[in-house]
Design a protein around this nucleic acid. Structure first.
Lengths: 151, 151
DNA sequence: ACAAAAACCCACTTTTACCCACTTTATTCC
DNA sequence: GGAATAAAGTGGGTAAAAGTGGGTTTTTGT
């Protein structure tokens, strides 16, 4: 399982060094084969071990294709899902369209999120993080599942 | 299975180089024999491995032919279905009617979509993609299948 | 038979993946 | 505490592969 936050820099070629703590896990889980796609709610990327993504893609493909919202989700998520592989130095290469979508330049933040990783532009993450904290503390209706959660 | 986004250019003759990552798959699946037709909801083309298309065509043909919308679907999809084949350089040639329908000039985007590929004009895709993202985030009623999807 | 389009072929250009080496950070041992 | 050693991060150079652009031949349709 992935957790925690890592500050990572993209180099001039768009390569990103995966933090050491995840590498062995990625080799074991998926032989270093990953799939990156976009998050549709935030300008960030989602990075899955290949097998994990395959399960999700199967679910998305099974949605009824005459349903317009389902088609949109299919186009966005599967359409942006990009196979990437760890190179000999433990780096991955992110394609330009993905980098553009998430506004990634140099400084980025890699968030462990259980079965997947999220990659953010550092600036964007910092500002969204502050928003999140404000929203969690506002007294809006939280779903029951959250109200009953004991930390 | 197909996934991901590839930027591809049509050349002056209307030829399109299939990205390398798909070629071996296409040779294995269907010996490079494909069928292209139009998408009826968006101005883009759908490209299937021949065997995959045959299954779909059978389903479309089985629709009740006294039903007017079924007849329309049959005329549009089967009527535009065009056999195309990979040439020695891994390129396919798109007929002028198909290119016109999808407004393809030079810059295009090829989207992997599971069992099929979608081909868009780059400009049209970029603008539709932004629409899709906006629509996904609007609080309209999403189908239950989507609400329960956990990524 | 002729014109137009498609198929085929070959060569050039650009991009990518792979490899290697250097710099910086962390660790260990004296 | 500091030097020595190891490990991780970083930066490019290069060979191979993929993309691209026509010229020529064959087919098709009128």
């Amino acid at each position: 399982m992935f957790r925690g936050l890592s500050a990572v820099n993209l180099d001039a070629k768009g390569r990103l060094a995966i933090p050491m703590k995840y590498r062995q896990l990625l080799v074991d889980l998926c032989a270093g084969r990953l799939v990156a796609t976009i998050d549709t709610e935030e300008r960030c990327l989602l990075i899955y071990p290949e097998g994990e993504w395959d399960l999700i893609q199967a679910k998305i493909e099974a949605l009824p294709s005459f349903n317009p919202s389902a088609r949109r989700i299919q186009r966005l998520l599967i359409g942006h899902a990009t196979d990437i592989e760890l190179d000999a130095n433990g780096r991955i290469l992110l394609s330009q369209p993905l980098r553009e979508y998430a506004q990634l330049d140099k400084e980025t933040v890699l968030l462990g999120q259980g079965k997947k990783l999220e990659l953010w532009s550092k600036d964007l993450w910092n500002s969204r993080r502050d928003d999140y904290i404000a929203e969690v503390n506002s007294p809006d209706a939280l779903p029951d599942e959250l109200l009953n959660l004991s930390l």
